Amino acid sequence: MATTNPRIKALSDVGVSIWLDDLNRPMIGSGDLQKLIDEQDVVGVTTNPTIFASALKDGTAYNEQVKQLADQGAGVDDAVFAITTEDVRNACDVMRPVYDATDGQDGRVSIEVDPRLAHETQKTVEMAKQLWQTVDRPNVMIKIPATVEGLPAITQVLAEGISVNVTLIFSLERYRGVMNAFLTGLEQAREAGKELPSIRSVASFFVSRVDSEIDKRLDAIGSDEAKALKGKAGVANARLAYQAYEEVFGTPRWQTLADDGAHTQRPLWASTGVKDPAYPDTMYVVELAAPDTVNTMPPKTLEALADHGEVKGDAVTGSYDDAKTVLDQLEQLGVSYADVVAVLETEGVEKFEKSWDELLASVEGELTTAGGNADYATQEA
C-alpha cells in the first residue's frame, strides 16, 4: 500500500482513501487489481449495474460459470446474482490484507442491491441481507440508494450489523437524512448487542452529474453570468456536504456512539470522472481532497491523477462560504436546486435500472447460447 507516485501519495496523505470504480473477473484473475493496490494506493472497489453490464459484454471470462448455471437450469436473476457475488467475493479476498491493515476502514468492495427495488424498503432489506450472507466476507459493503424508501432500509440493515455504502446522494437535505438513518441504525445495533466497531459505512455523494444537469440549464439561460457559473456547482455541493458531515459528527448524539467504538460514516465522492472535456480531468479529485473522505474513481480518472494531478492539500475545509455563494447565485439566476436534485435522483435510479436490464438481457443471451433451459423469464425480485 505504499505507492511511489508522488501525485497519488499526495492525495492519500491528505486523508483520502482511493477506491476504484470498476471491477471485472479478468482484473481479479490477472493480478491487475493487486497491482493497483501495490502501485496506485487503491484501497477499495465499488461496483454498480453499469460496471457489471460492461464486464459481461467483454471477453469470455464468464463463459464457464454461465455454462454451469445454464446446465443447472438457473433463471436469469439467479444467474446474475451468482455471477456478481462471485466477482465481489473474489475481490474481497484480494482486498483482505488492506482491510486487515486498516482495521476495517478500507479494503472494502461494494455490491449493489437490485436497483429495481429502490422504492421498496422491505425488499431492499431482504436482498441486502442475502447479498451479505452470500458474499460472506467481512469487507463487503452493501450499496443501498438514498431514496426516501431507502432511508429506513439503511437503518434496518445497519442495525443487523451489516456495513452499508449509501449511494445516489445528490441533495444536502437528503444527505442529512442519510446521516440520521446511519445514526439510528447504529443506535439500534447497539441496543441489539452488536459490536459497533465492526460496522462501517460510507455515503456516496454524486458530483459530476450535478454539473451536467446544472450546466445544461446555465447554457439555456446563456448570459455571461450564467456561463461564469458553469462547472462550479458539483464541487460546491460536495463541499457543503462535507460541512454537514463535520456538523453531524460533532454532535453529542454521535459522541455517545463514538464512545462505544463506532466509526463515522465517511463521505465518498462518486461520479468523479468529468463529463465535460472542457474541465480538468482531475477536477473532482483535486478540488475535493479532504480528510476522512473516499474518492472512487473510474480507471481513466485514476490514470489522470497519477500522470498530472496536482493535489494541493485539503481543498474543502473552510471553503463553505464560497460554496454557498455558488448555490445562491444559481438560485438567483432561476436554477432551482430542489428541482435539479429531484431530477438527478429520478434519473439516477432509472439509469441503474436500465443497466440492470441490460445485464439481465446479456446474461439471458449467454444462458441461451450455453444451451440451458429455453425459458429464462425474469423472476420476480
Score class of each variant (00 low, 15 high):
311 V>C: 10
101 A>Q: 14
323 A>Y: 10
313 G>W: 09
92 C>F: 01
376 Y>K: 12
307 D>G: 08
109 V>R: 10
344 L>P: 11
36 L>S: 03
295 N>R: 10
57 K>H: 15
76 V>E: 02
307 D>A: 15
19 W>G: 00
339 D>I: 10
289 A>Q: 06
327 L>S: 05
151 L>P: 04
333 L>M: 09
2 A>C: 00
92 C>Q: 05
374 A>Y: 14
302 L>Q: 09
143 K>T: 10
152 P>M: 02
249 F>G: 02
10 A>Y: 00
42 V>N: 07
210 V>L: 15
130 Q>H: 14
284 Y>M: 03
69 L>A: 13
65 Q>Y: 13
130 Q>C: 08
103 D>P: 03
33 L>C: 09
120 E>V: 13
234 G>Y: 03
271 S>Y: 04
111 I>F: 02
207 V>M: 09
19 W>Q: 02
9 K>Y: 01
9 K>E: 12
246 E>S: 09
5 N>R: 10
159 A>L: 06
73 G>P: 11
285 V>T: 14
270 A>R: 08
49 P>I: 08
195 E>Y: 09
364 E>W: 08
208 S>Q: 13
288 L>E: 03
23 L>D: 05
184 T>Y: 02
278 A>D: 15
356 W>F: 15
152 P>D: 03
367 L>W: 04
178 V>N: 01
251 T>C: 00
64 E>R: 14
202 V>S: 04
161 G>H: 07
154 I>S: 00
167 T>E: 03
134 T>Q: 14
274 V>N: 04
335 V>W: 06
16 V>M: 02
280 P>F: 00
164 V>R: 08
295 N>S: 12
378 T>I: 14
84 T>G: 04
270 A>H: 07
301 T>A: 06
138 P>A: 03
285 V>D: 02
4 T>H: 09
363 V>D: 06
65 Q>F: 11
318 G>C: 11
292 D>P: 01
81 F>E: 06
17 S>F: 02
45 V>D: 04
86 E>D: 14
67 K>S: 13
85 T>M: 00
213 E>F: 02
28 I>C: 06
123 K>N: 12
258 A>T: 00
98 V>T: 14
9 K>I: 00
90 N>S: 13
82 A>S: 13
26 P>L: 09
321 D>R: 15
138 P>V: 07
1 M>K: 05
290 A>R: 04
211 D>L: 05
157 V>E: 03
99 Y>A: 10
35 K>N: 13
223 S>C: 08
37 I>P: 04
51 I>N: 08
318 G>V: 13
57 K>I: 14
260 D>L: 03
183 L>F: 01
329 Q>Y: 08
335 V>R: 10
237 N>G: 04
